[in-house]
């Protein structure tokens, strides 16, 4: 299934903290597991927090990095899949 960011929300049980100029750490308070996010993953996470659509997050991507929209869309989709796999986001 292809997800769109608009139907995903960040989990209330997840805390994010910035680190080192754009990277971040996610803490899943349910499992007490920590996840390290690189700069691109943080862009996606912050986009989700702000309720952005997938196209808006892709736009954030392409404005920050020299990457084609198709490739950026694929990267964003993969990150959303990972967030869902680890139950860090939920379908709204």
């Amino acid at each position: 299934m292809i997800m769109t960011a608009s139907n995903l929300t960040t989990g209330a049980h997840v805390v994010v903290t910035d680190f080192d100029g754009g990277e971040g750490i996610l803490v899943d308070l349910n499992t007490k597991r920590y996840y390290q996010l690189n700069e691109t993953a943080m862009i996606v996470w912050k986009g989700l927090e702000q309720g952005k659509s997938i196209s808006e997050i892709v736009a954030d991507f392409t404005s920050s990095y020299e990457v084609e929209p198709d490739r950026a869309t694929l990267s964003v989709q993969r990150l959303l899949d990972s967030f869902q796999t680890y139950k860090l986001v939920s379908a709204g």
Binding site: T17, F19, D20, E23, I25, Y34, Q36
Partner: peptide
């Protein structure tokens, strides 16, 4: 891979 370094650094900062 540096994950623990970042984690402990976040803890120290906090």
């Amino acid at each position: 891979h540096g994950t623990k370094e970042k984690l402990y650094s976040v803890f120290v900062r906090a």
